[in-house]
Design a protein around this nucleic acid. Structure first.
Lengths: 359, 359
DNA sequence: CTGAAAGCGCTAACAT
DNA sequence: ATGTTAGCGCTTTCAG
């Protein structure tokens, strides 16, 4: 019963079989146009007889000149793309909002910072807009490729790009708030564990010269916010926002400071994962939190595994940020003026910060 | 300088300007066909003069009848799609391999288990193949939608589907191995913390009737493997593979058992996240690991934050699994016979399992 | 409310 | 090595 037809049925064949014109058949599927219920049923019946499963998206896309696809560049290191819970939550919000408009998200692996080659999808894949979740560097190969192709861009968390809406965070203010909290608790010797600076993955203390190289915007903004309040006694650069790097950094910062009386009494990290690593390092060194050392993070992640500690952290609206990015995409496609925005953040004290230890 | 042309330049315009035919111009870009270097340069020059940035993917796709897009259904709960490090690592491997073939990954949010509505992208988006990372249920709306559209499917981790390659895990054997390890250490009272059963999110102890409902394949397989060796004294069902649910489950399992002498001496969890939650619960209850209770997981995740404990876990090759899925996709597109495979897993003992406590 | 016709931009036979 | 031609499958004016 029912030989497989050599090729997929087309709208034309359905129309023919239903005894109507293609345009009418098209109407039957689009649902929008004026069409008698009977005609529509006739078309639908013919379609199901032929095993026609609806208009071929490729034809529709070419005709409309739109793919309905949004390219999302995520991650700054291939193979590590989704290990970042921050990016992942943003992505979640983004997918949600775009889904309501029938837009699909095409994943595009980010480039290795420091290399100039970009993913071929960036050059060839069909997309109506691209979203750069992680912001842009000063000379960003990803952004360049997109601009060469005239693909409109929405930027999350970064420096503004000509003609592209920017969904940013008030992370400078947030970082300042975190440090102010520490200062109010009496801390003066505050160490900083920072996010990657940009190109090249380095780890270790950063001197003034290196500090000037911070090119990645979240890093630069948070560094600036911290310095709005106090100058860190040391800045430890990490190659990625991962627990293990936070742990390594804090082990160095807390363990090797001589004399111990000059040890920093507080650590402010650029991310919660780094801060969590610092908490673990402190525990391993036998230090009490916050009695011996206070630790503050940034992001507001839910980290049940840090229990019983709850990280003091600058919360940012991650899913909301994704949703805003999505809305910016939709606006852009609707031909509206791109509007940028900076989302508010706020410090939420946990159990990991307290008064400076008395000496 | 340079008014914006009303509409994007096309290959035809480039050809015209270069004084060649469209097909020649096409050749200049495809790079494959026979063409003199001079002609090619002429075309390329004309292109850059016109600001032509390469063939429009939409036209190419329609012509070729292929979109170069692979739909990947991930997550079984919208808005929670990427919170699962297991799925995320699989995705990583998948994106990697597909990238080498120029194939893009279109994210498709999974349906809410238990609801029959599917994401509209599933019905309308262009895709050459779809990958169901998380396997299929017995009556899977996602799979149904795909089959209706005649989209070829590759299934990860699940029951076999007619004509679809299956990239599975030997998780039954792996689960058995974990339990055998516990039994060899002398444990007899072993509790099980299980992954979700399928439709509907429930949490709590599962009776025999409920056990029979386990529809999601990884869950069913791991349950079977455990029972190949021993019958758990209790099976605690969780609504999702999250640390907090593992913690809740273990708190109940370890805390409320009366008399305490009948408390399970070991817990085997269907996932590392659940197991990690159990470790945290045990710590909170003041129990030593593994002196008071042994805990084994499944997945082989790297969990630096569980330090100093290292989870005893059945390691599965996650990125490899993603890569295999990708290769299955590529084979399918090349018209080759779909071949299924079951990847090996292996127990890697950590610090969280030890001999049964002497009473 | 329905039909006819025009093409979206490209590639791949085929012919030269 | 290059040109000619014919669509891929669809939507959308524009007439009727």
């Amino acid at each position: 019963m029912g030989r497989t037809p050599s090729s997929r049925p087309t709208l034309a064949r359905v129309a023919e079989r239903a005894g109507v014109s293609v345009s009418t058949a098209s109407l039957a599927f689009s649902g929008s146009g004026p069409i008698t219920p009977e005609t529509r049923d006739k078309v639908l019946a013919a379609a199901s007889e032929l095993g026609y499963t609806g208009p071929n998206p490729l034809g529709r896309q070419l005709r409309r000149g739109r793919s309905g696809i949004v390219g999302v560049v995520i991650g700054d290191h291939p193979g590590r793309a989704f290990r970042d819970p921050v990016a992942v939550q943003v992505l979640d919000g983004l997918v949600d909002v775009l889904g309501t408009e029938g837009l699909g998200v095409l994943l595009i692996p980010g480039v290795d910072l420091g290399q100039d080659a970009v993913d071929p999808l960036l050059e060839t894949a069909a997309m109506d807009v691209a979203v750069l979740v992680w912001g842009v560097l000063s000379e960003d190969p990803t952004l360049n490729a997109l601009q060469r192709r005239n693909v409109p861009v929405v930027v999350g968390e970064g420096r503004a790009v000509e003609g592209a809406p920017l969904v940013a965070l008030e992370d400078r203010a947030g970082a300042a708030e975190a440090v102010r909290h520490l200062v109010e608790l009496g801390h003066t010797r505050i160490a900083e564990i920072s996010l990657p600076f940009g190109r090249g993955e380095r780890s270790g203390p950063a001197d003034a010269e290196r500090l000037a190289c911070a090119d990645r915007t979240p890093t630069a903004h948070r560094m600036a916010g911290i310095r709005d309040v106090v100058d860190p006694v040391i800045t430890w650069e990490t190659p990625a926002s991962l627990v293990e790097h936070g742990r390594d950094a804090a082990t160095e910062i807390l363990g090797t400071w001589v004399p111990a009386s000059e040890r920093p009494t507080a650590i402010v990290a650029h991310s919660d994962l780094l801060a969590a690593g610092a908490v673990i390092a402190a525990r391993e060194l036998g230090l009490s939190i916050p009695e011996d050392v206070s630790i503050a993070g940034f992001d507001g992640l839910d980290l049940p595994w840090l229990s019983p500690d709850v990280l003091t952290s600058v919360h940012q609206p991650l899913r909301e940020k994704g949703a805003r990015l999505g809305r910016a995409v939709i606006d852009l496609l609707a031909g509206e003026e791109p509007t940028s925005i900076a989302l508010p953040v706020g410090l939420v004290p946990g159990t990991t910060t307290g008064p400076v230890p008395r000496t």
